[in-house]
Design a protein around this nucleic acid. Sequence first.
DNA 1: CTCATGGCGATACACTGTATTTAATCATTA
DNA 2: TAATGATTAAATACAGTGTATCGCCATGAG
Lengths: 230, 230
Amino acid sequence: MTVWDRPEPPTRPVPLDRERIVAAAIALADEGGLEAVSLRKVAARLDAGPMRLYGYISTKEELFDLMVDEVHAEILPEEQLGDWREVLRILAQRTRQAALRHEWLADLLGGRPTLGPNGLAVTEAKLAALDGLADLDTVMRAVETVSAYFTGAIRREIANLRAERATGLSKRDWQRASGPHVRRMLATGRFPALAKAVHDGTEVDAEASFATGLDWVLDAVAAKLARPPA
Amino acid sequence: MTVWDRPEPPTRPVPLDRERIVAAAIALADEGGLEAVSLRKVAARLDAGPMRLYGYISTKEELFDLMVDEVHAEILPEEQLGDWREVLRILAQRTRQAALRHEWLADLLGGRPTLGPNGLAVTEAKLAALDGLADLDTVMRAVETVSAYFTGAIRREIANLRAERATGLSKRDWQRASGPHVRRMLATGRFPALAKAVHDGTEVDAEASFATGLDWVLDAVAAKLARPPA
DNA sequence: CTCATGGCGATACACTGTATTTAATCATTA
DNA sequence: TAATGATTAAATACAGTGTATCGCCATGAG
């Protein structure tokens, strides 16, 4: 028995913490989507048995919550922002950018209340930006309306992106309804307005379209802030 | 061997079709949420083996698509609607009502393009309502902005509803942050605006809040329709 | 050195979506 | 009518999942 034959000393278990677990889960999700995140795989990436994770999280859902909160740390900008409109716009756009980096975020966005420290910090930033500009009800409605918009818009954008990717169609072809199923549907003549839209539609830039819709919603909010409800 | 001992003649397999399968899946989801929908359980409800379903659907995701499209049939109203604003408002509200009847819809909404016949019919109705009121780009932006809003708003409403249900807290208590975790967070003093909002906030009616935000967004759309972009 | 304790890995269970293989039934032809 | 071929359902199988439970082993205290 030479040194080389001697078995390695039993590797002391690497100390774990939520941060490392969440980081591993996010890495997995970035690579293979949410469905690629299994407790076994997360644990394996940390050289641990699956059951070890239960010392730090109590369920897989909880892990998802932690992942979402972690991404909210990326969303919150470091530097101070300007007026309420800039705050809401930047936060919306940073959320979108985060979802483009972590597509799985689109699957989770809006799926449950974000009560982690970073999620709360983002909410705090929004509320603080509007503080005093109107009565609390109006402020809440403003924040929630803008959030609802960008949640929905981001989800749709990612959904379309995946559909294009899956069918291998370019965005232009997709909008032209080259998919056989959609083409057949349009050919029935039951959807004239849609058919016209598909036929005449020009290529749309997802980012610009997101920004435009966001501006509209912000315009609406601005109008209500100026004239709070009776 | 008497008559009673004689085994029942082998029950002819009940003919299946997508409709029955989708109906069974929806029933399961209505009772126990999306996670209660398994191909085995759907099949069992139809007195069939799991593999039989694969003659009618090719994957579970596809079943989900069919379920969403089926609900869109409920969303589309029978009677003719009025002007564009009423069309968009009613469709948004009917989507919300459908999600309250079928909470699992919130999990799927916006998750992938809705290309089934009923989903397309709903889109057609929206586009038709705005047809000719502005250039195609503006019309598309209008439809997508309103859809993004109500998708996000519905998801949040259902998410909050589930959170209340899970914690057993009334909406009021929830908003008062009776949850020990949130209470602790607010006590840190790092979220003053949020703390104030939670403290001063009055009970909100989800339906009214949805309607208000929707009206704001529709106001924004109206402004853009009046003045199409240069 | 001995013993207790607590964390960790291994094992186990019920279940999932789906591929494949086998059995049964039906239609068709001789 | 008998036999054969084609279609359809069922059974089995597989790899994987979240999570409960159990038993071991290393570390700390006495």
